[in-house]
Design a protein around this nucleic acid. Structure first.
Lengths: 326, 326
DNA sequence: ACTAGCGATGTTAGCGCAAACATAGGCGCG
DNA sequence: CGCGCCTATGTTTGCGCTAACATCGCTAGT
């Protein structure tokens, strides 16, 4: 920066100012500085700047897994909203609270200015660290009642409840429910709770053997269908609430020659092009994953500009997409 | 850190050392320091550490898009290999060289210690900046002959050539080729070049109207099939070399009642569970995307430990998966 | 004309750590 | 027994920038 300053015949301070707030220096001076920056190929050192100003523009994001295309949508939303001014650090928790804690610790050491979490469950230490850090935090995976700070998204409970009631209303009575493993996964837990609540609300019982946890994946969905049919032959509908499980189940049903939806209805969540393209097209839940990421980043940046705690909870809802599979 | 040092009755320097290299301090002292850290809830400031040592552990990664599950595999590979010691900054170029340049500039301002690029095309300024920065760089999207620094992956050219020759060997003569838009996408360009080279090698011509560029997506693949059949009714095979295009084309063929592979063969790339699950299962290319990310990060870290330029180019190859669609 | 006030720039100090060098005590060895 | 050497720790300095304050014309109001 000294070189640039010398070349532009100003002090380093003026260069620093021109970089941070171009309107704060004389137009002509600014042009000289810009020319000098170009000539020297100077790249500002944000590390030094951050240390001096005691803040960074870096935002941290922790998702359960980086491979999962669901989270990819949210990541893209966050990245787009942040723009070039806020670099993004990403880590995955590996679906484990301990993994999340490690990532939070690493992020805080980097003095991130804000954080987005896909979880609403955290270790006690995670909570303490975030609290002590005093940085804005947005939880996005599930619209929780008591967020650490802010939350944006949809209620997995409500969504699962709505889909279950839809099935009940259409006359299905032996409904299987398949979710991803519930351990350390509040979203899956909430969905199962919603599924059970819908039964209770309608005065129905859901047999425990109709509840299943299944790892992610297309084949896994097929196996889940097989398991449920074997376990409860009378099962007349299955709600597979994660990833591509429903598509896998539908393909398996087709392979077995089971009439969907007359022998067995299949419904899913996380709508995508594929669920519409298969035959029959899947009735499913659609979540605004990209928007959730986008809004999460917006809320973070708004808070950084103005520390007043205005919006704390933003419900972006869900849609129930009716197609032919139920 | 002063607080921790006071509590442990040592100097700040000893605390700093205990954090960076626990073996360099007395075991008992270390335990006192660890206890003091626990008691105070001290979180080291890596920003200050980076400024003082003039290096960070942060690795930068730029992919064309964050939503795309192909890149997600690579991202996970990079993240897993880096581990907790190397935070990861991610940006997307939006499939544009200018976007990549902006991301590189932002990363360099953050003084990243190494960078992974999914591109092998770059703006002149990008090259200059990376060169001046003097940090290790791994290009992963396409195994290029002249990497900026290091490269790992597979040859899109070879892979596309192999698949095309496979089709030719099986007697197909009017082969359509569909790729993602080629502008600013060297991977797609290389694949088309490989497709054409295979024809030339066998002394065949490929009609220009059999070449198509198509945006990503399942529906887009379906439209590509429709376009090619309308344009060249004699088309007897289509090689769709991107994303889920091939699956989309197969579903569209099924909808139209076209016999695959007898009326028309369909082959793809980037194998996934779905391509195996559809009917008929797709013949396709499989790329080691996770391994590419993993190795890229490994190469970066190896270089950081030992600046000798050993491995510059690592070919992880590809597989041609024969199934029933051709 | 005098001064308050403002825009543009400069000066000083320090952010929280780590590199480099300094120091102190213990040990073996001729 | 004195020397060198090694281990464990401390002191000094500065990384490259920015916050806070200082300075210096210049304009406008009375």
């Amino acid at each position: 920066m000294e070189d640039v300053a010398a070349l532009a015949a100003v002090s380093a301070m003026t260069v620093s100012r021109a970089l941070r707030d171009p309107t704060s220096v004389n137009t002509e001076t600014r042009h000289r500085i810009e020319a000098a920056i170009d000539a020297t190929g100077y790249v500002p050192n944000r590390i030094a700047g951050s240390l001096a100003s005691r803040r960074t523009n870096v935002v941290g994001l922790i998702v359960p897994s980086l491979r999962n295309s669901l989270f990819a949508e949210t990541i893209q939303g966050v990245s787009d909203a942040l723009g070039a001014h806020h670099p993004l650090m990403i880590a995955d928790s590996g679906y484990a609270l301990a993994g999340e804690e490690a990532a939070i610790r690493a992020f805080l050491a980097q003095r991130i200015c804000g954080i987005v979490l896909h979880n609403t469950q955290h270790t006690a230490r995670s909570r303490t660290m975030l609290d002590d850090a005093g940085i804005p935090c947005v939880e996005t995976g599930n619209l929780t009642e008591k967020p650490l700070d802010m939350t944006v998204g949809f209620s997995n409970y409500d969504a699962a409840c709505a889909m279950t009631e839809y099935l009940i209303a259409r006359g299905y009575r032996n409904i299987g429910f398949v979710s991803l493993p519930i351990r350390d996964n509040d979203r899956a837990a909430e969905r199962r709770a919603g599924f059970l609540a819908a039964h209770q609300r309608r005065g129905l019982n859901s047999a425990p053997e109709l509840l299943l946890e299944s790892p992610p994946g297309l084949r896994s969905g097929g196996r889940a269908l097989a398991t449920l049919i074997e376990r409860v032959p009378a099962v007349d509908a299955i709600f597979l609430s994660g990833d591509v499980l429903a598509t896998g189940a539908l393909l398996e049903a087709n392979r077995r020659g089971l009439d969907v939806p007359n022998r067995i209805a299949i419904v899913g969540s996380d709508d995508n092009e594929l669920q519409e393209a298969v035959s029959p097209p899947l009735t499913t839940l659609r979540f605004p994953r990209y928007q959730i990421g986008h809004q999460a980043a917006e809320m973070l940046m708004k808070r950084l500009r103005n520390p007043s705690r205005d919006i704390r909870r933003l419900d972006l809802g869900y849609e129930l997409i009716e197609r032919a599979s139920a």
